[in-house]
Simulated scan of single mutants.
Amino acid sequence: MSGLQSDRNYPVTKSDEEWRATLSPQEYAVLREAGTERPFVGEYTDTKTVGVYACRACGAELFQSETKFDSHCGWPSFYAPLAGDSVEYLEDRSLPGRPRVEVRCAACGSHLGHVFEGEGYETPTDQRYCINSISLTLKPAG
């Protein structure tokens, strides 16, 4: 059974078997079981290409490259989603003593990463969306 069960009805729905058939084992572990890729190994950690980042599971557009910044955390960081309704937020208490806010794709419910606020980020929103590269696909501009 998938680790991302929800009462919410997402526009993009697939059975667990369908997700396993369309995603690599590593993609499935992060996107459908809320795993995390190792820091500094993701394909988009240092990418500066202009374009739109989409959900690797369903293709929904999530972040613009203009909001990506180098936070030196080991994962691609953005200061805002493409649209307010493109992602959803869930309380994550999986780390004892350190509650976090999980970020999921609003179209399919796939795990993307976490968002952190008020930690001194020099961004227009004072937020850092710390997103797994393996959760994203870059659609270059033009």
Rank of each mutant, 00 (worst) to 15 (best):
P76A: 05
F116Q: 11
A83H: 14
R100F: 00
R100N: 01
L95G: 15
G97F: 02
F63Y: 07
E88Y: 09
G84C: 04
P76Y: 07
E88L: 11
F63M: 02
H114L: 09
V115K: 01
C108I: 10
R93L: 13
L95Q: 15
E102F: 10
H72Q: 14
P76L: 03
E61Q: 13
S65L: 05
V103I: 04
G109S: 07
H114I: 08
F63A: 01
D92H: 04
R98A: 13
V103A: 02
E91Q: 14
C105T: 13
D70R: 06
P81M: 04
C73F: 09
S86G: 15
E66K: 00
H111E: 07
D85M: 12
V115M: 03
A80P: 00
A107I: 08
V103S: 02
P81Y: 05
D70A: 03
L82I: 07
E102D: 11
C73L: 10
E61H: 11
G74Q: 09
L95P: 15
P76V: 02
G109K: 06
S110F: 10
R93C: 13
F69Y: 06
A106V: 11
V115T: 00
E88S: 10
L90Y: 13
E102T: 06
Y89N: 07
E88P: 06
S65M: 05
E117A: 13
A80D: 01
Q64M: 10
V87A: 02
D85T: 14
V115E: 06
E102C: 06
E91A: 14
E102L: 10
V115N: 02
H72I: 12
S77M: 13
K68W: 04
R98S: 13
E88T: 08
A83T: 14
Y89K: 09
W75A: 02
S77I: 11
E61L: 10
S86I: 15
A107P: 04
A83V: 15
E61I: 11
E66Q: 00
S86A: 14
A106D: 08
